[in-house]
Design a protein around this nucleic acid. Sequence first.
RNA 1: GGGCCCGUAGCUCAGUGGCAGAGCAGGGGACUUUUAAUCCCAAGGUCGUGGGUUCGAAUCCCACCGGGCCCUCCA
Length: 486
Amino acid sequence: MGEDELIEQRRAKLDRLRARDIDPYPARFRRTHTAQEALAVLEKGKQAEVTVAGRVTAMRAMGRATFVDLRDGSGRIQTYHKQDVTGEEAYDRLKEVDLGDFLGVTGKLFRTKTGEATVQATSYTLLAKALRPPPEKWHGLQDIEARYRQRYLDLIANPEVRETFLTRSRVVAAVRRFMDARGFVEVETPVFQGTAGGAAARPFVTYHNALDRQLYLRIALELHLKRLIVGGFDKVYEIGRIFRNEGVSAKYNPEFTMLESYEAYADYNDVMAMVEEMVAGVAQEVAGSQRVPYGDAAIDFSPPWCRVTLREAIREHSGVDIDSHPDVESMQEAVASLGIPIEEKWGRGKLIDELLASTVEPNLIQPTFVTDYPLELSPLAKRKADDPRLVERFELFVAGREVGNAYSELNDPVEQRERFQEQARRRAAGDEEAEVVDEDFLVALEHGMPPCGGLGIGIDRLVMALTGQTSIREVILFPQLRERGP
RNA sequence: GGGCCCGUAGCUCAGUGGCAGAGCAGGGGACUUUUAAUCCCAAGGUCGUGGGUUCGAAUCCCACCGGGCCCUCCA
């Protein structure tokens, strides 16, 4: 049976219903109970009359009696339609009902002889006719491309997918509650920006007609949130979408969600403690435990987490002591000797970053703070007092992926200008991901910013770690895909 | 950007050179407590697209489109 034919059959049913003066898309319907509420009523032993509504997910017809499974946002409930109860006309009309249609059903609750809570229908109403058939009821929707392109079908057919996205929603809500409870003010900053800064990434470019001006989509929240610290908000955060013009893969989606927070009079150690408390609390709230399954093992979010300096981490996992390679040439040699492909133009910082990504990161399954990064990788972070080559910075790794990044914010406007200028030199030398000098931000810093601890958490990756997903597309409802071909 | 793999009915999948199949869904019939309901009957195909090899291609080769995984880059 071809798809067109299946649709044609459903249209014919629609026409027959209309011919009988039945509106297949009524404007409203009053239900008295959700599926879950109705089940609870019967649980209390009450054989009350209820009106429920939902999508038809299965029909089992046996001559003059039919069982219909209805699903709403709360769950599933079975309705039972008997010809001698509903009357012949209404019973025959069930033939025009298809899987995927929405139905409202009124009747008394009872238990079948197999014990299933059921609504004995005295009447029912078609609430919306579906013209296309739903996916297979037992195997669900397996085709990965179809799952992403038509996520609504994925959500209908695959309950665990629905569960993952409910978890995502709970994670965001729990993070927000945590930040609010600590006195952080939630703010919203511009998505369109004249210069896109705050991260090493290529931006999307767009154009504003009335302003006659090229604009960029933000690649980070950082520089505007710090302006607000200058403006006197002591604690601010934003949970927002950011956009990076990079490849698409299981780890990367061009738009993703970041939490960034800035706290005046805090440093990166304070931020570390806050992150531990926040993520452990979120895990407890959404997973019911600070230990969450990860493959055959588990990730344990209970504090304190492992803390290791970048130098130690790299030495442990690659055998290379970065302090023994103070110049670019020596570092290139060390990295290349591990079989890691390198590029001639890479500086010492980039080489260290590469060492981290390829030797350390995949091994950090349990939550781990890697601290004290090279200055050249961190143009917005404050220098360590006891070692000017390093900054007060940490990255958080979980499940072999970077989940967070934080530092004591650089608030010396003169040094910030120098750091921007160094970035500008790199950009001129062909590094498209170097920071752009943001004069407006420098002016803000020149007005004085208190010492401040900043944080960025990749919400998508946090959700991945908390739900055991290995592809970012499983935690983004509508991931970016290539345009469908002809 | 490179390598490997996949694309068959609305959905889930068999079929690897010789008549294009099954289950679910859909259609007809039997069945008044089923639940992957059961039983009977009939129907349903641009085998991703376009070339090529061959007497013969879903099957082998090439290109393209889409997807997946692994590299590369980015969080």
